[in-house]
Simulated assay, not measured.
Amino acid sequence: MQLSVKRNVSQFIKEIGLFRTIGIIIVIIWSLFPIYWMANNSFKDRVEQFSSPPSFFPHNITLGNYIQLLGEMKFHHILMNSFIVAFVSTVIAVSIACLAAYSLSRFRFKGKRILLCWILMTRVFPPVTFVIPLYTMMGQAGLLNTRTALVLAYIVFNLPFAIWLLISFFNEIPTEMEESAMVDGATPFQSFIKVIIPLVIPGIGATAIFTFITAWNEFLFALIFIQTPDLSTAPVSLSSMITEYLVLWGPMSAGGILSIIPMIVFVLFMQKTLIKGLTMGAVKG
């Protein structure tokens, strides 16, 4: 009787594992199929893109879409614009967020909870809420149609998220470490730079990755603040390929693939930092 029960339990566990594996495979296919189809279309000519039934592999592989995208449309300049804006805004936003998150984590003062709620509320509101005031300020400062306008807008939009994410990492660091450093003669700023920051590097890396991806994929601010095609970002440039009379599916698919590659490389390069940041404080001795 006991043996039969054990066999049934072990068989049930195996079935659960099988269903879990099947479910994971379905989710992976569901998530990656749009990327595969975009890559598939990027190597097809326009006739094969509209063939019926659709072909899951290009019969005649062509690089014409990439040549048109990088040659006539100069998409590599667009990618460089996106990288500059996303990278600069990420560095500034994460640097400011480190100081703000450390202060909110360590110091007690009146109105701290109200300030935390206000920071959170600015992130809860949709980006369109800030378009009119930011556009007015950028226009008065003469920053429209410049990368600086996008950098400042992305800092405003990403800073609350970065602060809230970093607060949890600073809370994991015991205050005794700073106190021991100050006993040895370090100033509060020196203990912050030399003791705390090295311990929160994984959290800073994880925050930088999410901030960079958000800035890279942002569309609304880039569409409104930049009217010059040479300074537009990748999402806006790809959307311009949908015209009133024609949709350039081939170059748009090729541009989508080229837009994904920098993010994949960046995340793979920061993979260890991302994993450490996401699991930081999860296991305690």
Rank of each mutant, 00 (worst) to 15 (best):
F221D: 06
E172P: 01
S31Y: 07
A181D: 05
L99Q: 14
L152W: 05
P54Y: 09
A282E: 03
V91N: 06
K74I: 10
M38R: 01
I13M: 09
G281A: 02
S95W: 07
I92T: 07
I260A: 15
T279L: 10
N217V: 02
N8P: 01
S168Y: 06
V131E: 04
G255C: 07
P34W: 10
M1I: 10
N81R: 03
S103I: 02
F50G: 01
S237T: 09
A186T: 05
N41R: 03
G111Y: 14
P133L: 06
A86P: 01
I167F: 00
M252D: 01
L63G: 11
G111C: 14
Y135L: 15
I201Q: 13
M137K: 08
P133Q: 07
T90M: 03
Q271E: 13
L70N: 09
A254M: 00
I204W: 02
G17L: 04
Q190N: 12
S180A: 15
W118S: 13
H76D: 15
A100S: 14
F157N: 10
D184G: 10
W118G: 08
A101M: 00
Q271W: 13
L104K: 03
F50V: 12
G64W: 12
F221R: 04
N65P: 04
I24T: 14
G281W: 01
F83R: 05
V236I: 15
F83M: 14
S168F: 07
Q190M: 13
L246E: 13
K112E: 02
R147E: 06
P34S: 09
